[in-house]
């Protein structure tokens, strides 16, 4: 399975799912947690699922009783969680370095 390309939306989704790794997540909740619009979120979820980082399943409810259709739930796989941790950590490290270092002065490079 191909590795997903690490874009900012992919990292945001991975970080949001890692933050609550034991829970199952659904679309609107992930939109709220990541700030991503629906048009960006769903393609990211499909790419992560294709890469084997995420698994999805239908919510087990009776739609008549609940008064709404069953949601699609997404959860990180073990492999996805391990990979996502590494990628998010690497990204955070990079950001910390960038934020902590002064900009190079002219003539000092």
């Amino acid at each position: 399975m191909a590795r997903p390309r690490m874009t900012t939306p992919v990292l945001k989704v991975a970080a949001a799912m890692l933050a609550d790794i034991d829970s199952e997540h659904y679309g609107v909740q992930l939109m709220r947690d990541t700030g991503l619009p629906s048009g960006t979120l769903y393609p990211v979820l499909v790419r992560l699922e294709r890469a084997g980082w995420v698994q999805s399943r239908w919510e087990q409810i009776d739609p008549v009783l609940e008064g709404r259709p069953a949601r699609r739930y997404y959860v990180l796989t073990a492999e996805g969680a391990a990979e996502a941790r590494l990628e998010v950590a690497a990204f955070q490290q990079q950001m910390t370095r960038a934020a902590g270092q002064p900009f190079p002065q002219a003539g000092t490079a």
Partner: peptide, 16 residues
């Protein structure tokens, strides 16, 4: 994917 995604979007829509 079209059918599964449409069902999941409609489900989210129902909660709004």
């Amino acid at each position: 994917l079209a059918e599964v995604m449409l069902e999941s979007w409609i489900a989210e829509l129902a909660t709004m």
